[in-house]
Amino acid sequence: MTIQEAGPARPEARAGGARLSMRTRRALWVWGFLALPILFYSVIRFYPTLDAFRLSFTDWDLMSTPEFIGVENYARMFGDPHFWQVFRNTFAYLIIGTPISLVLAFTIAFFLDRVRFAHTFIRALYFLPFITTASAMAWVWRWFYQPAPTGAINSFLGQIGLAQIDFLKSTTWALPSIMVTAIWAGLGFQIIIFMAGLRAIPQTYYEAARIDGVGEWGILRKITLPLLKPTTVFLVVFASIGFLRIFDQVYNMTTNDPGGPLGSTKPLVLLIYQTAFSSYDMGYAAAQTVVLFTILLIVSLLQLWIMRDRA
């Protein structure tokens, strides 16, 4: 039964101009509100994404008309050792960065949850890096990493009689050094999310376990971690995507030679940026983007599948 059927019998309903059924009117409102974001995303996000697939099969320097060249971009990319180095770098950020940052974030959240003294203040300190501009943060860390006497870390190493480390100038140390900054930058957000997850676990679960004689470690393993799984899944996916798209920390910490030394810190996004806006090789950049898109898709789906709830 709808209002429409009852409508003609009620003159005041007609006078109000409400000839449409309740259902239609509601749909109009809903779509009215949805139209703007849908339009926005279609034009700004979805269309360029789809267009990238088309462009990846062309040769285009922004000025000329794109010229169709088949899979030549992909052939060139897969035959290029530089691409594979960047590929390895990207996965290094992902595979080392995600677990370290999540374990750190959980540990801090777990203990911070029990700290009453200056709780809000400490939490704010941890959150601060997350809202700080990446370039400002990167410059501070660059200063840390300078050789002595400028750099704080090397000065300290010198004082206790240890050898200097060429953090950002070494092909071995540059990537881990940048990763530390990246982990630190994302930590605050992950801590907040973990703490919200911890707070959502009812206290009586812990009390019941204490009465049953389960120790701290048992409680953590059998109760806290399993009940925190939805939070963890969210953060694993979120952090993975973050590390796969890492750009600003790398770019800002290696401004003289972005992605250097010798491309040892260069992630995919930076490679794409350089291909597109330094070499103006748009077709090739689009092909690299398609690869990144595919990796992101596979990694996210894989994680959701692995950590799915089997219940």
Binding site: P202, T204, E207, A208, R210, I211, G213, L227
Partner: peptide, 18 residues
């Protein structure tokens, strides 16, 4: 609590959903 040899039942059951 564990050394007191008692067992407790709570209002919200406190049974584990997982």
């Amino acid at each position: 609590p564990k050394s007191r040899n008692i067992a407790m039942v709570f209002q919200n059951y406190a049974i584990y959903p997982h």
